[in-house]
């Protein structure tokens, strides 16, 4: 177990190291003179020279790279070109909003995905199974940014039930601001008993969470159905029903428990993919998270921010995959970690 963890972490570190190298070389070699990117195309030559010296562009690439790596370890990831503030700070203040959105979406996806999967497995090949399969594949095929806009048209424009964008209403931010406890805005509003902000935040969360959930929900429903069908064909299920156990009990407790490990695998992978989904959903819903910041950074060619996001994204993805493996080993003793 420990050996497994050590080897996986070793691979993860190696992967991240290679990534820093690749992104660094790409960001320094492809755009030509990075000082021009920093200062803008109209900067005078003396200004460019000053920037080159200040940011170390006049040094050999290898020295620059070593300095960059050193900075990564000491917490100096460079300053964002757009906001001129440390990239790490920019990401840190936005991370909680993204995590809250991601968590809400995954919660929806797991609950509804598992339920739909179990229901579909009850009558394989029948109409309800076909409908659920169509919905699941539809969820996977849906462009998240488009679904978000459709939901806005319906629930904001036509029905007026929910707010369109942002995490809290502007009025709430003035009238009943959220006190800082954990840094997670919605959680903090709940912990401090700030009901005005909490209900407002929940209302803002519904549409982006539903939008983001469509893709993982489809994956989870399909996977749950497949593994339920496999489990339901086993001898012990047959025995249980021969002993007269109620069908619902067999399905929802006995079979589902054993169908969960493969489902958990797909939950982890789906969460990792949903990370990318937050980029588009945050743009559509003006959600103050990392995704929106990342898209802005990419459009503005904000290198330090892009590099930080790349590393963070890869780290998140690696961690998700590792957690999946560990959970799977925990749920299914037959899985050997090697």
């Amino acid at each position: 177990m420990l050996r497994f963890l050590a080897s996986r972490l070793g691979t993860a570190v190696l992967v991240l190291f290679v990534l820093t190298l690749v992104v660094f070389v790409m960001s320094r070699v492809i755009p030509g003179d990075p000082a021009v990117v920093y200062a803008g195309p109209k900067a005078p030559p003396e200004e460019l020279a000053r920037i080159r010296e200040k940011l170390g562009f006049d040094q050999p690439l290898i020295v620059q790279y070593v300095n960059y790596l050193g900075g990564l370890f000491t917490g100096d990831w460079g300053n964002s070109l757009a906001t001129k503030r440390p990239v790490l700070d920019e990401l840190a203040i936005r991370l909680p909003a993204t995590l809250e959105l991601l968590f809400a979406a995954m919660l929806l996806a797991v609950v509804f995905g598992v339920v739909l999967g179990v229901v579909a497995a009850k009558r394989p090949g029948r109409a309800i199974d076909g409908v659920i399969r169509f919905l699941a594949i539809g969820g996977v095929s849906m462009p998240a940014f488009w679904l978000g806009l459709l939901l806005q048209v319906l629930f904001v424009g036509r029905l007026g039930w929910l707010p369109a964008t942002g995490q809290f209403s502007t009025e709430v931010e003035y009238v009943s601001p959220v006190a800082h406890v954990t840094g997670f805005p919605l959680l903090d509003s709940l912990l401090t008993g700030n009901w005005i902000a909490y209900s407002d935040g929940l209302a803002h969360l519904v549409l982006p969470a539903v939008t983001l959930a469509a893709y993982p929900l489809g994956l989870i429903a399909r996977m749950t159905r497949a593994s339920m069908l496999e489990v339901l064909g086993q001898d012990y299920v047959f025995t249980a029903s021969a002993f007269g156990l109620r069908d619902g009990l067999i399905r929802w407790k006995l079979a589902l428990k054993n169908a969960l490990p493969p489902t958990m695998t797909i939950v982890g992978l789906a969460a990792a993919y949903t990370l990318t989904g937050t980029f588009f959903v945050e743009v559509v819903f003006n959600w103050p998270g990392i995704g929106q910041f990342a898209v802005g950074a990419m459009l503005a060619v904000d290198y330090p921010a892009i590099m930080a996001i790349t590393l963070l994204g890869a780290a998140g993805y690696l961690i998700a995959n590792l957690v999946v493996d560990l959970i799977q080993a925990r749920l299914d003793p037959r899985v050997r970690l090697s």
Partner: peptide
């Protein structure tokens, strides 16, 4: 391939386009 797959494909594509130019 592991290095490539340690990364959501769409994010990798986004970063590449951001650097190469849209």
């Amino acid at each position: 391939t592991e290095v490539f797959q340690a990364f959501p494909p769409l994010l990798l594509a986004m970063v590449t386009v951001a650097i190469l130019g849209p």
